[in-house]
Amino acid sequence: MSTWDKQTSSSDEHSFNALPEPSPTTLSAPHWDACKRNQLLAQQCHSCQQFVFPPQPFCPHCVTDTLAWQRSPGKGRIYSFTEIHRPQTPAYSTPYVAAIIELDEGWHMLSNIIDSPATLLSINQRVEVVFIERGASKIPCFRRTL
């Protein structure tokens, strides 16, 4: 049989019953473990003081290996957002808001804005982190603040 002969069925046969949970790596495990304790962590470089997220093995700014996990107060602003009507999978209720959050320390992360319809949101809106249970994990989401 040829090496390219198709052996498996369609790759699109996932179960979409549950919302996805994160699968931490060795590198990212401290971030996700802290979420379970309602803490938001990002790496900070001791040499150049810059924050790094998603996690890296060494500082991409000054290339020293002095990164350490730091707790973020979890306050920042909406850098950009989109109201999603066509869900990633049927497990999501629509509409929901995905956003890029710019934390006050200067780093960015993807997240969801909860508790506010998109009509009340704008870029630069102040937000703070809130941890939402999902299975055995907790997901860092954000909500509006004054």
């Binding site: 994160p22 990212s28 997901i139």
Partner: peptide, 9 residues
């Protein structure tokens, strides 16, 4: 891990 669980695509 840093995009899927927020419903991004």
């Amino acid at each position: 891990e840093f995009s899927e669980c927020f419903g991004l695509y």
